[in-house]
Design a protein around this nucleic acid. Structure first.
Lengths: 171, 171
DNA sequence: AGTACATGATTAACATGTTAAGTTTCGACG
DNA sequence: CGTCGAAACTTAACATGTTAATCATGTACT
């Protein structure tokens, strides 16, 4: 953003070497981050209009798909760490978008469910959200998108198979 | 982490519906996030051992590849937002890993470069980092990895082409 | 029962993401 | 030369990421 100077600038700092950071374009984490950002840039404004962050939206969607769910399980499904989840749940509960109880058989476990208000909010946001997703799918190609999903899954598998507590190397 | 219970658990909350959130696995942002996390899980411990965060490492790498670079340009290359970059630069400068001056022709522009100490740190971390990358490349397949990179780039292009200030729809 | 350890969840502390507002410096223009 | 708007950062404020520590409850074992 903001190249007041034209490309032919001869200041000397960035042209003084090969190409400024070809390395980075080849960094896998960076490539994934950039791609994700490009996608999220489409969604964020929509969520923001409804006072939701990306993570809050993930949680509401997750809760909407089940009858009830425990905190740990929600963390796994929504791919959030415990501390983040705790803070967000506190907020969502305050806003009346979700409800929480405790498992009678195990008082440590919190049981969560979405509220009517939460469901109404989802119904309000979903159309725009799905429209954006449809647009992406159309522009990129549904076939290609499916292939990408597959490759990402496989990457996840070949790298860190999310070690079970048993087959862990050390520690 | 920590499933003491075996897979056949019949607690009831999560089995009470179809499948807990098949939707999410199909969410593109989620898939990208999960893949990236799987990859980063391999790198974070290494960086951490040297007192570096992922972003600090990105900045050092970027600075190491050029003679000097301005703040805005660094933000673009390292894919960081201005505010984050400001904070990190302050810290890295305090630690003596980078140096900063000001462009004599334009006092608004800060000019950054890596210090000898910063270069030594990079030389120290790079081997482990590259070993991890090689491992990933081997396990996933170099060919496939290249294909993934290509698809991610194309996704970035087809979705939000990083609008230049001119061809912006509205606002 | 009593102790020791594991588990579920929250809190703490620090770093970054994200948007808005503020500061300083440029550049153009009257 | 003054001022007005844009540009380059920086600060501010709030939300999340990340790791470690804390708390309460469960479980197993003696």
């Amino acid at each position: 953003m903001g190249e007041t100077r034209s490309k032919g600038e001869k200041r000397s700092a960035k042209e003084s070497r090969k190409v400024p950071m070809r390395d980075f374009s080849q960094s896998l984490p960076m490539a994934l981050l950039r791609a994700r950002e490009a996608v999220m840039r489409q969604f964020r404004p929509i969520l923001r209009q409804h006072g939701l962050t990306e993570q809050q939206w993930r949680i509401l969607r997750a809760l909407a798909a089940v009858d009830a769910i425990e905190v740990t399980e929600l963390a796994r499904v929504a791919f959030l760490l415990g501390p983040s989840l705790s803070r967000i749940l506190r907020d969502l509960e305050t806003r009346g978008l979700i409800q929480r109880e405790v498992n009678a058989r195990d008082l440590r476990r919190g049981v969560l469910s979405i509220s009517a208000k939460g469901l109404r909010l989802i119904a309000l946001v979903a159309p725009s959200s799905e429209a954006v997703y449809a647009s992406i799918s159309e522009r990129y190609g549904a076939r290609k998108l499916a292939a990408l999903h597959k490759m990402l899954d496989e990457l996840e598998q070949s790298v860190g198979p999310d070690l079970e507590p048993d087959d862990r190397p050390d520690e």
